[in-house]
Design a binder for these strands. Structure first.
Lengths: 207, 207
DNA sequence: GTCTATAAGGAGATAGAC
DNA sequence: GTCTATCTCCTTATAGAC
């Protein structure tokens, strides 16, 4: 519980903050050292390369996203529309707390094709991770079978919801800069978006 | 019509290609010179700084996007649902031809706050550009008034559609790398997404 | 206008003293 | 483990010859 952790974990923590703020190419190992309060050589001593350090941050973030994505859809004993409402609400809450995460992951995947393949392989090696889609597919197609919702491919279902939720947070810094809005106006905007999206999706996929 | 344009426009053209492929920070003036077939000093001779060259590319791209956004909604003499169908179709067509454009613009705006403010001022100085939203607002709220569609804020209407269309193209390189799909499978995927999104939006905003 | 050469600075990574 | 010093490479930008 002491503030002083070992240096290795302090470096990892500072690196995580900086990579999320400024991306891989926008963060130097000198920046990381400066935030930790040590010298640049130590960053390389513990992690050898900047890429190693980055991958530890990146992979843990992808894992968090995958867990968050499926969790609210798996709750039992709820009407599908309530599940959906809860899921979209949960995504909004998660993204409010981790607003730079989607852009970070997408950006780093797009900027480096080798990284994209590495991430894909890492993802596929783990059964529970790679079954995220299968799990959601199960839930959605059960509802289609019951006639609760119109026939829809699970990939469309997922992409519709992810697009509608994530995109707001990707462009949030632009919205903030353009509208010069306060934190509470921002929160109001996000909340209003959430309600509209819930309405759009529920009406958009009903039979 | 000859292939040989003047060097200045060749540099601009190559810079545009490279900035779109690899972003501002991923493109060096040496890369640009190499593609043109001249030396790096000439890039600076014509544009002085890399930033100047970038801004010419960037501003023209933002202009293209704004024009494309409003155009299909302004056609007269059409049922609103048909307008909507056409608009989403037109956005998909535009994005198919310019698939890296959304990520490029968002990325560069997010990576540089000064650039964001510059772009915003540039945007606001021009009346027709800054009235894009007003124009769309007019169209949408007229339909709300007539009861064709449910009460919806224009900002929600725009963001719903932009999110649903743009996001597919942002993540397309990831989809391609992960699914190892051919060009025709990719086209089929995009087309299937288009149809689903049209259905989702039309049902999602009807009264 | 076009070239070569180079200045000036920042990056990642390592060597070696303590 | 932690530090300073340094190597090597790459970047933007400019000086100056032709």
């Amino acid at each position: 519980m002491s503030k002083e952790q070992n240096l290795e974990s302090e470096i990892l923590k500072s690196a995580e903050e900086l990579f999320l703020e400024n991306g891989f190419s926008g963060t130097s190992t000198t920046d990381i050292a400066k935030r930790v309060g040590c010298n640049q050589a130590l960053v390389h001593y513990y992690f050898r390369t900047k890429e190693n350090l980055f991958l530890q941050v990146f992979n843990s973030k992808v894992e968090t996203i995958l867990t968050t994505l499926q969790k609210p859809l798996l709750q039992q004993n709820a009407e599908f529309n309530d599940k959906l409402r809860n899921a979209i609400g949960a995504y909004f809450d998660f993204l409010t707390e981790n607003s730079r995460l989607p852009f970070f992951v997408i950006n780093e995947l797009l900027c480096n094709r080798e990284r994209l393949k590495l991430a894909y392989n890492y993802f596929m090696q783990n059964t529970s991770r790679s079954k995220v889609f299968e799990t959601i597919d199960n839930v959605v197609q059960t509802e289609v079978g019951k006639g609760t919702i119109r026939p829809i491919k699970t990939v469309d279902f997922v992409l519709d919801i992810v697009s509608l939720t994530v995109f707001n947070f990707i462009i949030m810094p632009i919205y903030k800069a353009v509208s010069d809005s306060t934190e509470s106006e921002k929160a109001e905007f996000i909340n209003s978006r959430k309600e509209d999206i819930i309405t759009l999706v529920i009406n958009g996929i009903k039979c």
